[in-house]
């Protein structure tokens, strides 16, 4: 093996380690969400003081939010496929669509929070309400940062073109974006659906 090929291999190794490091960050973020879930579950029991979440939950609305986030994950997958095929414009197109769907999700969530607060289920109403807004809000904040990241990627694509650096960056973003949808599965199941039963 020539020295050049060896250096090349070494470069690949360090890239794999980079992605693994980002994966470990995602896993620690999972643990952050686990502690917020634990807080919510402990504070939100049937005899707890404060307004009942059950009377304020609008499941049809949450179902639309879920489909927006799921759809944005799918369009993100399509953008990765386009990038791997070397189609720059298509990659950008799918990323823009991902951004629109994700922004729709965040917009709906903000609207929902405002409506809840007007109905009396606000941040200071009870321990359960505080835990609810912290848990769902932390997820919403993550999605908002993801949106910013998608926007940056859309503008980076014409600069770096279809290159190894873009392929690696889109893998980071993909891990992050998919992780947020996975957290949302447990949010709608545990917080909204179980809260509405």
């Amino acid at each position: 093996m020539s020295a050049g090929a060896l250096a090349h291999d070494h470069h690949h190794d360090s890239e794999s380690t980079d992605v693994f490091g980002f994966w470990l960050y995602i896993l620690t973020d999972c643990i952050l969400f686990a502690s917020l879930f634990a807080t919510y579950l402990v504070l939100n029991h049937p005899d707890a003081y404060g307004p009942a979440f059950k009377e304020h939950v609008n499941l049809a609305y949450v179902l639309w939010e879920t489909f927006l986030l799921l759809g944005s994950n799918f369009t993100f997958g399509l953008s990765v496929l386009s990038l791997n095929k070397g189609k720059l414009a298509m990659t950008q197109f799918w990323l823009v669509l991902t951004f629109i769907l994700g922004a729709g999700f965040v917009g709906m969530e903000i609207n929902e929070f405002v409506a809840l607060a007007h109905e009396g289920f606000h941040w200071q109403a009870s321990g359960a309400a505080s835990a609810f807004f912290t848990l769902v809000g932390t997820h919403g904040l993550h999605v908002s940062f993801g949106l910013l990241w998608i926007l940056i990627t859309i503008f980076q694509l014409p600069i770096f073109k279809v290159s190894q650096i873009m392929k690696r960056r889109i893998i980071y973003l993909g891990l992050f974006w998919n992780f947020l949808d996975i957290v949302w599965i447990f949010l709608f199941s545990i917080v909204y659906l179980m809260g509405a039963v």
């Binding site: 470069h11 690949h12 693994f20 489909f67 799921l70 997958g77 399509l78 496929l81 893998i171």
Partner: peptide, 25 residues
């Protein structure tokens, strides 16, 4: 392509996954 351990991306798998997720939602 360097090995990230993230698997090969395929359109058929994405569509199949999306379908299952919609049903399971």
């Amino acid at each position: 392509q360097p090995d990230y351990g993230t698997g090969e991306k395929k359109l058929s798998v994405y569509i199949f996954g999306l379908f299952l997720c919609v049903v399971l939602t």
